[in-house]
Computed example of a mutant assay.
Amino acid sequence: MGWRVRAIRGATTADSNTESAIRQVVTELLDELSTANELDPTEIVYVVFTATPDIDAIFPAAIARQRLGWDLVPLLDVQQMVVPGSLNHCIRVLIQFNTPLTQAEIQHIYLRGARFLRPEWSLSTVGTRPQ
């Protein structure tokens, strides 16, 4: 079928609004997404991170920019909508990239507390169900 532009979704939650906690979970999420989808930074079209309003100690894109080969990747951070009862300390990512993988082969990954957002895409059992 050849190469196509595809998108990967992922999400995670931080234990707290600290630079170290956010760095840990963003790195974990990007590592899992990169490994599962054989991401080549030179084939990434762009990456959009969203964060709930209670996450502001560091930009997730600043963490991604420090990854090997990601310095030229277009990165953007935006704030998620405020919806009553939604998950706190949540960071989501949308990665658009060029790949020979089919849509069915793309592995979306939801970690920690975010695994309850899309249970069918959950990879990890780390964390607890949000209240």
Results as ranks from 00 to 15, higher is better:
residue 66 Q to C: 02
residue 6 R to S: 13
residue 29 L to D: 00
residue 92 R to C: 07
residue 58 I to H: 04
residue 113 G to Q: 13
residue 69 G to K: 02
residue 107 Q to I: 00
residue 21 A to I: 06
residue 66 Q to T: 14
residue 78 V to T: 11
residue 37 N to Q: 08
residue 70 W to M: 07
residue 75 L to V: 09
residue 73 V to N: 09
residue 92 R to G: 10
residue 126 V to W: 00
residue 78 V to I: 11
residue 62 A to D: 15
residue 119 P to I: 13
residue 61 A to Q: 07
residue 10 G to R: 01
residue 64 A to M: 13
residue 75 L to F: 03
residue 95 I to N: 03
residue 101 L to Y: 12
residue 74 P to D: 06
residue 105 E to P: 00
residue 4 R to S: 14
residue 12 T to V: 15
residue 12 T to C: 10
residue 19 E to F: 07
residue 88 N to P: 13
residue 90 C to F: 08
residue 31 D to Y: 07
residue 103 Q to C: 03
residue 14 A to M: 06
residue 103 Q to P: 07
residue 73 V to Y: 11
residue 93 V to S: 01
residue 45 V to F: 11
residue 99 T to Q: 14
residue 34 S to Y: 00
residue 131 Q to E: 09
residue 101 L to W: 05
residue 103 Q to V: 08
residue 21 A to D: 11
residue 5 V to P: 00
residue 112 R to E: 09
residue 102 T to Y: 05
residue 118 R to V: 07
residue 75 L to D: 03
residue 23 R to L: 04
residue 80 Q to D: 12
residue 5 V to Q: 05
residue 17 N to I: 01
residue 18 T to Y: 10
residue 29 L to S: 02
residue 14 A to G: 02
residue 43 E to W: 15
residue 18 T to W: 13
residue 96 Q to W: 02
residue 29 L to K: 04
residue 86 S to E: 13
residue 92 R to A: 12
residue 114 A to T: 00
residue 29 L to E: 02
residue 27 T to R: 06
residue 39 L to Q: 04
residue 87 L to F: 08
residue 39 L to E: 06
residue 119 P to H: 05
residue 113 G to F: 06
residue 101 L to I: 00
residue 22 I to P: 00
residue 68 L to M: 10
residue 27 T to W: 02
residue 39 L to S: 07
residue 130 P to I: 03
residue 55 I to F: 14
residue 64 A to L: 11
residue 92 R to H: 03
residue 7 A to H: 13
residue 107 Q to L: 11
residue 103 Q to S: 13
residue 99 T to M: 15
residue 1 M to L: 11
residue 34 S to L: 00
residue 102 T to W: 06
residue 88 N to F: 09
residue 33 L to G: 03
residue 54 D to C: 09
residue 31 D to R: 11
residue 69 G to W: 06
residue 9 R to V: 04
residue 115 R to K: 14
residue 26 V to R: 02
residue 97 F to H: 10
residue 126 V to C: 01
residue 104 A to D: 12
residue 131 Q to S: 09
residue 43 E to M: 14
residue 80 Q to H: 03
residue 62 A to N: 14
residue 26 V to A: 06
residue 120 E to F: 03
residue 38 E to L: 13
residue 89 H to N: 12
residue 43 E to K: 15
residue 53 P to N: 12
residue 2 G to D: 10
residue 59 F to C: 12
residue 42 T to V: 14
residue 97 F to P: 04
residue 81 M to R: 12
residue 70 W to R: 02
residue 118 R to S: 02
residue 72 L to K: 15
residue 122 S to C: 03
residue 67 R to W: 12
residue 9 R to I: 01
residue 39 L to C: 10
residue 50 T to F: 01
residue 76 L to P: 02
residue 21 A to R: 05
residue 69 G to C: 03
residue 93 V to A: 12
residue 99 T to P: 15
residue 83 V to T: 14
residue 104 A to R: 10
residue 96 Q to D: 04
residue 5 V to A: 08
residue 112 R to L: 05
residue 113 G to I: 00
residue 41 P to N: 07
residue 62 A to R: 05
residue 120 E to V: 01
residue 110 Y to V: 05
residue 122 S to P: 01
residue 111 L to W: 01
residue 12 T to I: 11
